[in-house]
């Protein structure tokens, strides 16, 4: 912890950053995001295996961007998100310094995104076993039962949009659900509108989702909403060999066109 805190103190001192996004321990004892603006707050900073939040989502936030020079303490999912977002030309308006703590508890300060990319490629995470288990189970169901499963899950959705709010890949200033001329998707939290919302969300994240699982973890109703996008990542890898958040020059499936595509209909 001390190593990390000293590193961050150094970054403040030499003017590299003026805001540090990291983790602290909450009263409830769990690690929670924290925002350090002054050297005196550095001692709250912690990093453990339980630091699950994907902090890269904050780099879209105007109040955070205002700081200009931002340090971010990243777990592997966050690093992947940073790679993916860089490939989508985000972050042109901020200076960011990325830190991580590796398995040997060493603090790494990356000097550029190429280094982040190399680190991510060397430590690329597998799909989580828990997710794979549930996906396999869903796969084993008949089409009708699968549809029933998701209809039941989504009928409980209250449209709090927390899944959207935590997702680093959901950065549109105006989401499709907020367009009301025309109203593409019903606002009321009822089964049809909920399904429309989740299908839309999943499609917009196809091949862009970096499997951090945040959306499923935080859903107040307990809907495993991340499985949809994780499943699509699985399929995209199978069909096209693409991996999200893997390469800075990566192109994601729904956004690329290749004249030699194996599907005939595309020509």
């Amino acid at each position: 912890m001390k190593l990390l805190q000293n590193k961050v103190a150094e970054l403040f001192e030499n003017g590299t950053i003026n805001l540090m996004i990291g983790f602290k321990e909450a009263l409830t004892k769990q690690p929670v995001p924290c925002f350090i603006e002054k050297a005196s707050e550095i001692e709250q900073l912690i990093y453990t295996k339980d630091c699950k939040n994907n902090l890269s989502v904050y780099l879209h936030k105007p109040e955070v961007k205002q700081a200009g020079k931002i340090g971010i303490l990243a777990n592997i999912a966050t690093l992947r998100a940073l790679v993916q977002l860089t490939s989508e030309n985000q972050f042109w308006d901020i200076e960011k310094t990325v830190l991580t703590v590796n398995d040997k508890e060493e603090v790494i300060v990356f000097s550029d995104m190429e280094e982040v990319e190399a680190y991510v490629q060397a430590n690329f995470p597998e799909f989580s076993e828990e997710d794979l288990k549930l996906l396999d189970y869903l796969e084993s169901l008949s089409r009708e039962d699968r549809w029933k499963y998701w209809t039941e899950q989504f009928s409980a959705c209250i449209k709090c949009y927390a899944c959207r709010a935590v997702c680093p890949m959901c950065y549109c200033p105006q989401c499709t659900v907020e367009c009301n001329q025309p109203q593409w998707i019903k606002t009321s939290a009822q089964t049809t509108g909920n399904l429309e919302w989740h299908i839309m969300r999943a499609m917009h994240l196809a091949g862009r989702c970096i499997n951090c699982g945040e959306c499923g973890r935080i859903c107040p109703v307990g809907i495993p909403v991340h499985l949809l996008t994780v499943k699509m990542n699985q399929d995209l890898f199978k069909e096209f060999g693409t991996k999200s958040g893997f390469a800075l020059k990566g192109d994601y499936a729904l956004n690329s066109f290749k004249p030699d595509d194996k599907e005939g209909f595309i020509k």
């Binding site: 929670v32 995001p33 924290c34 925002f35 603006e37 989502v57 904050y58 936030k61 109040e63 955070v64 209250i158 449209k159 709090c160 949009y161 927390a162 959207r164 709010a165 935590v166 019903k186 606002t187 009321s188 935080i218 107040p220």
Partner: peptide, 26 residues
């Protein structure tokens, strides 16, 4: 500003709250 820095602007707090009453007519 500092206290709200982490807020992501979702509806989870309001929807779970026993006294939040804001509504929208659709």
């Amino acid at each position: 500003k500092h206290e709200s820095m982490g807020c992501l602007g979702c509806g989870a707090c309001a929807f779970s709250c026993p006294t939040c009453t804001c509504f929208d007519i659709q």
